[in-house]
Amino acid sequence: MGFVSRGFRGRPRDEGVKLPPGQYLVHDFPVLSAGPTPRVPLDRWEFAIDTEDGQTHRWSWQELMALPAETPTVDLHCVTKWSKLGTDWKGVSLDTLFADVESSAEYALVYSYGGYTTNLPVEDLLDGKAWIAYQFDGEELAAAHGGPARLLVPHLYLWKSAKWVQGIRLMNEDWPGFWETAGYHNYGDPWREQRYQGD
């Protein structure tokens, strides 16, 4: 027999999905950790944007909640090769947070409660490409996934979407972050499979 029928089960749901090279699809939400999970009380939580001129713009949790929110549905691609499609988030666009920030810096270093850092060009944070997200799938963001708030920059590998985000430092020079100084790619475009330095 050279022909095997699929019967009437229909197409597997993974079939036909276009993923970045080397990725496979997951339906759970894996948690990868490089350290203890920070627990930040909301009354002490703060987010800041620090400019290259030494200006700091700060938002308390209440101030963040008062800003207009968006509800992006995005695909996530982790450098460890899993991808999760169609994830629903709620958060504040970085365009909103940058509205009153005067800066000509080209580089950003994102820093988190707990000490994590990651770097990316400022332009990758703007024009509807990034959010400070505080809800996932209709519920407040769990600490394991970066709550109370994380950066969401889904067009890059997920290590760029810093959990427990605390601030963004704008700089005239690129400053590689936690994984970028330990072998991972400086930019991390999943569609160009930029996993490691030299890719």
Binding site: L32, A34, G35, W179, G183, Y184
Partner: peptide, 17 residues
């Protein structure tokens, strides 16, 4: 912590890397 994306060994006294 890890092993993915990498192994991160922290001090049992202060949690720093």
């Amino acid at each position: 912590y890890g092993p993915a994306p990498g192994m991160v060994a922290r001090c049992p006294g202060c949690d720093e890397v």
